[in-house]
Design a binder for these strands. Structure first.
Lengths: 226, 226
DNA sequence: AATCGCCATTTTGTATACATTTTGGCACGC
DNA sequence: GCGTGCCAAAATGTATACAAAATGGCGATT
């Protein structure tokens, strides 16, 4: 059994995806992309034919997304895509601030030279995309940088938690594009924490990442006119 | 519609529980209590008759618990109660440390006088239970105190996240009862952060709660012979 | 004697059927 | 004219049926 699993692991993960797992991925993507709008009702049967699955796997997927907080299940009354609540987004950002700080500090202590080099490369790319005025690419790279920093913290629990919060924030951000001034400011903050990361200054990196997170939160919440 | 929901809210939440929701609660309790041991296989049909439900709601419940990380689903090969991995517990504690710090700071700023009074009452009770040598009561009160502090932070995202991590830690703690010395030390730490909380010293409270969390982590991980 | 391969059994994943509940509309009464 | 209550239609929650894959044991072969 042990040797067998070892052999399997060597061959690679053989897991064929199940329909409900695929449905979770698709639905989550649809929600994050805004295809399913916040507050809108989720009609089971309609989604079934849209995804080409029966109700059973779809419903299982809805339970998972409910556990993640992306949909809300009202017993006997159907599911809705969780509405964007500025108060909740504010709360999420508050936690994110702490997680960013944690991630930044740990990344300094645990990241490999290669990872730091890659981070530098991504940061240069971010800079170029800012200069080119390519907003969507900028945001994609931005997300990637933060994800990499979190990965460098070598903490799966942090990573999972961070991903969950990121998903919630992303929905709010998609409908709240902030202005040019904030964009410039955001890049400056990136310069700041990148400098701290380069010299492996855990305290400074954590602190600056937290600041960055807080200012991003302010901008997003302002855009949501709170 | 709006007035109607207001009326309903006034009457109280009328939601009848669904079977799968109940199954989630029961299974989670069973896992946390250790009735379903870490690493053990989850036999669907057996649990179905044990809980008195059919496979459909049970399977939905398993997906939810998988999303929470309490069980692992291996496609086509059944579910197992997530084994306790000291590395993962260590990672969880690392995040907990940050969350405790956040909660402590926010609680100082947002807690009401009544809540602080209640906290004092619980702390006195904790003290008494220590003196009485009532270990299980002590731990129950201990958990309650931390939960109250988190509640005082007025942050649902933090609260939910904290609850999830607590669940994971609890399983490890149940099989790792630490020694008398650590017990005494733990109480001292409670005295420490309680003093900071009483004077609404956010920075100190956060810092001391983080310390307490880290030391608890050390003790638990030591008990798991890491 | 040990290993490989095949077959029966069990278990999982999915689809569908059925029972309740909610929802929306209509008629009736005030 | 407005509100209430009832009825039909739709949708949800649950159970069950069916197909496919995994598990375990047996026998054949080397």
């Amino acid at each position: 059994m042990d040797t067998l699993s070892t052999v399997k692991a060597a061959t690679g993960p053989i897991r064929r995806e199940t329909l409900h797992h695929g449905a979770v991925a698709e639905l989550r993507a649809m929600i994050l992309a805004g295809d399913l709008r916040p507050g809108s009702r989720v009609a089971e049967i309609q989604l079934c034919e849209q995804l080409g699955v029966s109700r059973t796997p779809l419903r299982e997927a809805l339970r998972v997304l409910a556990a993640e907080g992306l949909v809300e299940l009202r017993p006997r009354r159907g599911a809705v895509v969780t509405p964007i609540d500025p108060l909740e987004i504010g709360a999420v950002f508050e936690v994110m601030e702490a997680l960013e700080a944690l991630a930044g500090g740990l990344a300094c202590r645990r990241g490999t030279a290669e990872e730091f080099a890659e981070l530098d490369r991504l940061h240069a790319q971010l800079h170029a995309q800012f200069e080119a005025g390519d907003r969507s690419s900028y945001f994609a790279t931005n997300r990637l940088i933060h994800a990499r920093i979190v990965a460098m913290a070598r903490n799966p629990a942090l990573e999972a938690s961070y991903a969950g919060f990121t998903a919630k924030i992303l929905r709010a951000r998609s409908l709240a594009n902030y202005d040019a001034e904030r964009w410039r400011e955001s890049l400056d903050e990136h310069e700041g924490f990148m400098a701290a990361l380069r010299r492996r200054d855990a305290a400074a990196a954590g602190s600056l990442l937290a600041d960055h997170s807080r200012r991003t939160a302010d901008a997003v919440l302002r855009a949501l006119n709170v």
